[in-house]
Design a protein around this nucleic acid. Structure first.
Lengths: 203, 203
DNA sequence: TCATAATTTGAATATAGATTCATTTTTTAG
DNA sequence: CTAAAAAATGAATCTATATTCAAATTATGA
C-alpha cells in the first residue's frame, strides 16, 4: 500500500528545504563555496548529514538553486518596478534603485553575487554572470532609446551601459567590503547624478 | 663538504620557478583555483609532481606569489606613469590608462584579478582586494586635490572615486567575458570623457 | 493499536588530490 | 674520474570531505 504524505509533513519538509537554503546562503556569503562542508551545513540547518541528500542531489545543485532563486528575485523586482513608469529615464532610475535597495536590504545576497560568485564553479559563475549581463543589456536598451529620442547625445551605448552599471557595482562592493559609504541608499542620488552627467543628459 | 651551486644551475632553477609561475597563472586564469591540481600543474610546467614542493611550500603559497607579483607589476607601472606628469588631471588619466593598457596587454593578469580572484581564498582575496582599494585610494586623492583646486565642484569624492574606477572595471570585465568592446584601448577616451563629465569638470 | 511505508540518521565508504620521502639522477670539486 | 652533495622524481601515503546505506525513527491509514 502507498501512503500519501499529509500537509503537515509537506509543510515540515518545505521548512527543512528552506532552512538548508538559508544555511547555504549564509555560509556562501560568509565563508565562500569551498568552506561549505555538508556536515557543517547540516549542523547549521539542524539536520543529519545524510538528510541533506534527500533535499538536494549534491552540493553543486544546492548552490545552483541558491543562484536561481537570487536571479529571479533580482530580475523580477527590476521588471516589476520598471513597469510602474512610462519615461525611459524613470525606468532606468528604477532599475538601479531596485538593485541598491535590494542589496542594502539583503546584504547576504549582495555578498554572494558580487564577492563570492566569480571563483566558485564554471556552471554557477555562468549563471551569476548572466545577471550582470542582463542588467547591462537592460540599461543599454534604455540608453539606445534615450539616444533615439535625442535626450542624450550620440555615443557608444555599450560602453556607457557598462560604465553606468559599473559605478553602482563598485560603490556597492566598497560598501560590502569596507562599510563605506556607510549608508548605501543615500548615495544613490549622488551616483545617479554622476551617471546622468556622464551620459551628457540635456537639461 | 658543502657544494656551491654554479650560475648555470642557479639560472636553470630560476627558469624552473618561472615556468611554474607561468603554468600557475595560465591555469588560474583559465580554470580557476580549484581546478589546479599539482600533478597537472607540474605536467604543464614540465617537472615532476614532487619538484613543485622544492620551489613552493604549497599550493596557496604559489597563488600568493602570483598575486604579489601582479600587485607589484600594476602598482609600479601606475606610480611610474603618474610621475611623468605634473597636473592632477594628467596623473589621474595616466593611472587609468596604465590599467587599460596593462590589462589589454596581459589578458591573463586581468582574468585572474577581475574574474577569478574573489572566491579563491580569504588570504588571497585580501591581497587582491588591496589592489582595488589602492587604486580607489589613489583616485580619491586626485579628486580631493582637484576639488581643492576648484577644478571640479564639491562632491563626495569617495563615491566619485568608486564610480570612476567602477566604470573602467566593468568595461574591462565585459571585454574579458564577451569580447565587447572589441578594442579595449580604443574605449579609453570614451570612458574618460564619461567620467570627466560625471565629475562635473569645468570646461 | 498495528503493520507497513516513508523519512531520517550518522557511521562507514569512497575518492580526489595534496603532500611526503625513499630512490634515482645530476652536479660539484678535488 | 670519483665520491659526496644537491636536486629531481613519482609512487605511496595521508587527509579531508562528499556521498552512501543499513538501521532507527516517525508517519500513515485501517
Amino acid at each position: 500500500m502507498v501512503y500519501r504524505k499529509t500537509d503537515k509533513v509537506e509543510a515540515k519538509q518545505q521548512q527543512r528545504k528552506n532552512s538548508i537554503l538559508r544555511a547555504g546562503k549564509e555560509m556562501l556569503a560568509e565563508e565562500g563555496y569551498q568552506k561549505i562542508s555538508i556536515k557543517g551545513l547540516a549542523e547549521k540547518a539542524g539536520i543529519a548529514t545524510g538528510t541533506f541528500y534527500l533535499y538536494f542531489t549534491n552540493k553543486d545543485k544546492l548552490v545552483e538553486s541558491i543562484a536561481d532563486e537570487m536571479y529571479e528575485q533580482l530580475i523580477d523586482e527590476i521588471r516589476l518596478e520598471r513597469s510602474k513608469y512610462a519615461s525611459v529615464f524613470e525606468k532606468l532610475q528604477a532599475s538601479m534603485l531596485v538593485c541598491v535597495n535590494l542589496f542594502a536590504r539583503e546584504k547576504q545576497l549582495a555578498k554572494i553575487l558580487l564577492i563570492q560568485a566569480p571563483g566558485i564553479s564554471k556552471i554557477l559563475n555562468f549563471k551569476l554572470v548572466n545577471i550582470e549581463k542582463e542588467l547591462v543589456r537592460l540599461v543599454k536598451i534604455d540608453l539606445d532609446e534615450l539616444m533615439e529620442q535625442g535626450l542624450i547625445p550620440g555615443q557608444d551605448t555599450l560602453i556607457s551601459a557598462c560604465a553606468f552599471v559599473g559605478t553602482f557595482r563598485q560603490v556597492i562592493i566598497s560598501w560590502l567590503r569596507e562599510g563605506r559609504p556607510q549608508n548605501l541608499e543615500k548615495s544613490f542620488e549622488t551616483l545617479l547624478g554622476y551617471n546622468l552627467r556622464g551620459l551628457g543628459k540635456h537639461d
